[in-house]
Simulated scan of single mutants.
Amino acid sequence: MSKRQTRLDDVRTHYARQMAAMSGSRDPRIERAFDLVPREAFLPPGPWQVVVNNQRIPTPTADPAFLYQNVLVAIDRDKGINNGEPFLHAAWIGAVAPQPGETVTQIGAGGGYYTAVLAVLVLPDGTVTGFEIDADLAADAAANLKPFDNATIIAVDAVTSAFSPSDIIYVNAGVVAPPLHWLKALKPGGRIVFPWRPAENIGVAVLARRAKRGFSARVLSSAWFIPCAGASDYHVTRRQPTPAEARHIKSIFLAQERPPDETAVAVYPDLWFSSANLT
């Protein structure tokens, strides 16, 4: 093994330990997954542009060691598509806690990097299906994921397409509200994590878990993602939350199962967010 490869392996191992710490999870498989999946394999050839405070900074060379830090890496500058912030995704992965054998649906697979990490975490017998509406990006992701037999990319719109019952739904695009069929696709105890954009000045990551009736919900962090085509129309909103209300949601209900009540802080045609715990 060359000295350069040894150095890169050490850098990736250090990065993986940071991801495990950021996940807030005691699951040692998270560190292993980030150590196993090479970030550079899911990006265009280097040198790359890392994004810091909305500024694009080119890496000095095509050395992959520059990628193993908590930075966005541009994939398509014109479309504003990037590889995703590692610390944020590590925290999401720790929160949804993928388990061996589970079925994961990812909405907005991008280049497939986090698809691959999720695929490692549900081995053996688990699967990840990534929806990617951008046909070129979907083709790239499918090529990047060839070594991962349990990962599949579908180049269709997840807002208008049905998908299989899922233990985890992992959303990488901002939504005013999650489409009804996403929530209905969750199995009992299933989890969904998504960037919630109920107003122009609100961007938070929400983790929800399906219960017998309704979904427990909590905000994980701030999160600003590109809008999800077909699920970003503010005009469907019947009640818009304030920033403070959005950060203190505790549950989500389907309107057909329970109409909005005095605890409602955000209301849409098919569902609503509540400030009250599930009972």
Rank of each mutant, 00 (worst) to 15 (best):
T103A: 11
A95L: 04
G110H: 03
G84I: 00
L67Q: 01
E85I: 05
I107R: 05
N83M: 15
P47N: 08
V104M: 04
V52W: 12
Q106N: 03
D76M: 03
W92N: 08
N70S: 12
Q69H: 05
G110P: 05
P58K: 02
P64Y: 13
Q55L: 01
I107L: 08
N82M: 04
A74T: 15
P47A: 01
Q99V: 06
L88Y: 05
A65G: 15
I93V: 14
A65I: 09
D78A: 14
I57E: 14
G94F: 08
W92T: 08
A62T: 05
I57G: 10
G84E: 13
V71C: 14
I107G: 01
A91E: 04
P47H: 07
V96K: 00
P47T: 03
V71N: 14
A65L: 12
V96H: 04
D78C: 02
R56L: 03
A62L: 05
A90C: 01
A91G: 06
P60I: 06
A90P: 11
R77I: 11
V71R: 10
E85A: 08
G46V: 11
G46W: 13
R77E: 14
P86F: 02
D76F: 10
V51Q: 03
N83I: 13
P47E: 09
P44R: 13
V73M: 10
V52T: 12
A65E: 15
P86N: 01
A90N: 02
N53C: 06
Q49C: 12
L88I: 04
N54C: 07
E102L: 06
G110T: 03
P100D: 13
G108R: 05
A62P: 07
P45E: 09
T103D: 00
P58Q: 06
W48V: 06
P64N: 13
P44F: 15
P58I: 05
Y68S: 07
A90R: 04
A74P: 12
G84P: 15
G94K: 04
A65C: 14
K79R: 14
T61E: 11
L72N: 14
P44C: 15
E85M: 04
I93P: 07
A62D: 15
I57S: 12
A95F: 01
E102G: 00
G80W: 00
Q99D: 07
P86A: 05
D78T: 11
T61F: 09
Q106I: 08
G80Q: 03
N70I: 10
P45F: 00
V50L: 14
A90V: 03
A109E: 03
A109G: 02
N70G: 12
A97Q: 14
Y68G: 03
I107V: 02
K79D: 10
A95R: 02
G84F: 12
V96A: 09
V52G: 12
H89N: 01
I93F: 12
P60N: 07
T105I: 15
L88D: 10
E102D: 11
A62K: 11
F66N: 02
I107A: 02
P58C: 04
Q99Y: 03
